[in-house]
Design a protein around this nucleic acid. Structure first.
Length: 402
DNA sequence: GTCAATTCACATGAAAGAGACCACGGTCTAGTG
DNA sequence: CTAGACCGTGGTCTCTTTCATGTGAATTGACGA
């Protein structure tokens, strides 16, 4: 019977010794006890925020550095310690952490302020109220006691890109209107040039203090990895050279520790699924490929239909001809695709933007070129290996019911 | 041959509209005492 | 009399269209050597 076979499988699954001891340690949400190789930065942050313990307003702080360089981790680490000290000594201090990238939570002015107000115990409807009303509520909530408030805005560049820098201006200016409380803002950004694009008034007040996080190098990544791996895996689960290779992989991609940990975790999962007792280099390679494939798959299937149709047009042209792909050709094919699947075609203006969005997602590579007398256009190239394009096409065909 | 003007095929920006979602206050309606 | 249903108004948010302006080098054509 199939059923008993399955029972056998589950039995064996339960019996097999897992190579994981605690998988959560490798998840990006995990906050480790000690933050390695960031002593200097943590010291700097602590120094800047420390005045809050004396009920003084700390300087606004701006942190930037590449993805996975420990910015958020360090900031949260300091915040947690600070809160602990404040608690222990009865100092009125409140720290709010907000990730501005989270869709539908804090990616517009209204939502950001509403979310902040909610953190102060007010209930704000998701929409329907005028924005200045929400400001007023937030203002009252914060000013009701004389407390120092530190607001950590993670991925602040995303917020500004979507909603403009007026929010930051308003936020930094709230201080002038507060009678009791004080607000400090700590912005975290991946984007190095983000500050330059800001309104100079906002820029000067937001970046009273600046801290730059350099990417981890391979050796530091190795340290971090081995520290986490010791907790995450059982003994002898890692074969020789795996950690080194993993660190080298990530160091190549600008020292992203988050990606590094993910790689190790997925490699572990693959090893376990193959009922292997340890993680080898081959698992690492498989993991690298799987992560890339999964990422692509998620992006493809979660895109709106219009983007899928556009991408389908690009992929089709890319497969059928070796020559460069231009916006005009894509749009023509896109229109026929639309009529075939009964989709109302968008204007070229919009499709142009969609192509730019696909570029942002890293599926295609776009370069604006001028062909002289023959106009200006985007030169589009698929940024996935040509071996995966047929599969991409198939996935898109299914998703679009072609 | 040289050089400035022209021209193409879009890119890029700004503004505004459509439609979905929501809160709030006023009005209407049916049920209850 | 009152709770709940049902508008109308005014707000946000996202996606899109419309209109306007910008752009960079191949091409063209006038000009001079």
């Amino acid at each position: 019977m199939g059923q008993s076979g399955l029972t056998g499988f589950f039995d064996r699954y339960l019996e097999a010794k897992s190579i994981f001891r605690n998988k959560a340690v490798l998840q990006s949400a995990h906050i480790p006890q000690a933050v390695l190789h960031r002593e200097k930065e943590i010291g700097a942050i602590a120094g800047i925020l420390a005045p809050s313990l004396k009920k003084e307003k700390p300087s606004n702080l701006f942190i930037y550095g590449k993805a996975g360089s420990g910015k958020t981790l360090s900031m949260r680490h300091v915040a947690a310690e600070l809160e602990m000290h404040a608690d222990a000594n009865n100092i009125p201090l409140k720290i709010v952490y907000l990730n501005c990238k989270l869709k539908r939570i804090a990616d517009t002015e209204y939502r950001l302020i509403a979310q902040l107000a909610r953190d102060y115990g007010k209930s704000i409807p998701p929409t329907g109220l005028p924005t200045d009303e929400v400001y007023k509520i937030f203002h009252q909530a914060i000013d009701s006691n004389s407390c120092v408030n530190i607001i950590i805005l993670d991925e602040i560049d995303q917020l500004v890109k979507k909603a403009g820098d007026e929010i930051l201006y308003n936020l930094t200016r709230i201080n002038d209107e507060l009678k009791n409380a004080k607000i400090s803002i700590a912005g975290i950004s991946n984007d190095m040039v983000f500050l330059d694009a800001l309104d100079p008034r906002v820029k000067s007040s937001l970046s009273e203090e600046e801290i730059i996080f350099a990417p981890y190098n391979a050796l530091q990544l190795q340290d971090i990895l081995s520290e986490r791996a010791r907790e995450a895996f059982t003994e002898n689960a890692l074969e020789q050279g795996v950690l080194e290779k993993c660190a080298a992989y990530a160091a190549r991609e600008h020292g992203d520790a988050r990606r590094c940990l993910e790689l190790l975790r997925v490699a572990g999962e693959i090893a376990e699924r193959n009922s292997s007792s340890s993680i080898g280099i081959s698992h690492l390679d498989a993991a690298d490929e799987k992560i890339e494939r999964d990422r692509l798959m998620i992006i493809l299937t979660t895109q709106p239909k219009q983007s899928q149709a556009t991408l389908y047009a690009i992929v089709s042209i890319g497969i059928s001809s070796k020559a460069s792909i231009f916006t005009g050709d894509v749009y023509e094919l896109y229109k026929t695709v639309c009529s075939r699947i009964g989709l109302r075609p968008l204007t070229q203006r919009r499709v142009s933007d969609i192509i730019a969005e696909l570029d942002m997602l890293g599926i295609v590579n776009v370069k604006v070129i001028s062909k002289g007398r023959y106009g200006r256009t985007r030169e589009i190239a698929l940024s996935v290996p040509s071996t995966t394009t047929p599969r991409m096409k198939k996935i898109l065909e299914e998703s679009l019911n072609l």
